[in-house]
Design a protein around this nucleic acid. Structure first.
Length: 216
DNA sequence: ACCCAGGGTCATA
DNA sequence: TATGACCATGGG
């Protein structure tokens, strides 16, 4: 089973996903932090609060008081931790010279820089690399583990970078646009039909899925 | 009432 | 290295 053939099936089923929903790269970065273990609909409310307060900028987030920021972030959950993470990230972002400077860095170096910021782990860093900086990095998330372990392609417990490198090696001939679309399709499929609780089966991947009728 | 969501950090063994 | 606790809102 090829990763490209799974992509083709998902694309045929769902079409273009138009990710990441944001007006600017900076909004992608903030959304990537806010969506950690949180439903996107809740993140949208927090982003709307920031926009309504004219506070969706690095300078605003750095200068506003913690309690005010946390209040805007409340719908996205973990609001105290996320307020601190946004402040830490924005401080680093301004120190680094913002998008203008960061965009010149090589992907490997930029990834290491992002990972050095407290509150940014592998998946958030890769969301930012792919969707804010258009780098050819494959994002591994819970849906990726679930879907491809059901297909018999990987172990769901495999380490993040092992999975990422496996995907990037097999998809080395593809484009950034394809990586963008693939991850979005994985999330779409995961949310829509490959959830944890219902039994697996009957979807557009049925003819290559080894776990028809299996839970988990 | 319970489970989960577009994770990550920290303490402990 | 590898578990577990913790963070917290909103929808199903």
């Amino acid at each position: 089973m090829r990763l490209k053939s799974v992509y083709d099936r998902l694309y045929s089923e769902y079409g273009r996903q138009k990710w990441w929903p944001a007006d600017h790269p900076f909004e992608v970065m903030i959304g990537a932090i806010l969506t950690q273990n949180t439903a996107w609909t809740n993140v949208e409310r927090a982003l709307d609060n920031l926009k309504a307060a004219n506070a969706l900028s690095a300078d605003s987030i750095i200068n506003v008081k913690h309690n005010a920021l946390a209040k805007w972030l409340r719908p996205s959950g973990y609001f105290n931790i996320k307020a601190q993470r946004l402040k830490d990230f924005c401080t680093w972002y301004v120190e680094q010279g913002a998008y203008k400077q960061l965009k010149h860095k090589h992907s490997v170096a930029l990834r290491e820089k992002l990972l050095s910021v407290k509150g940014i782990g592998p998946e958030t860093a890769d969301d930012i690399l792919l969707y804010a900086f258009s780098r050819k990095v494959f994002v591994i998330d819970a849906y990726t583990r679930r879907i491809f372990s059901r297909l018999g392609k990987v172990s769901a417990e495999e380490k993040y970078d092992v999975l990422r490198l496996m995907f990037e090696k097999e998809l080395s001939a593809e484009t950034v646009k394809m990586y963008n679309e693939y991850h979005a399709l994985i999330v779409r499929h995961g949310k829509e039909v490959c959830k944890t609780r219902p039994v697996c089966g009957g979807c557009c991947l049925r003819t290559i899925c080894k776990r028809q009728g299996v839970k988990g």
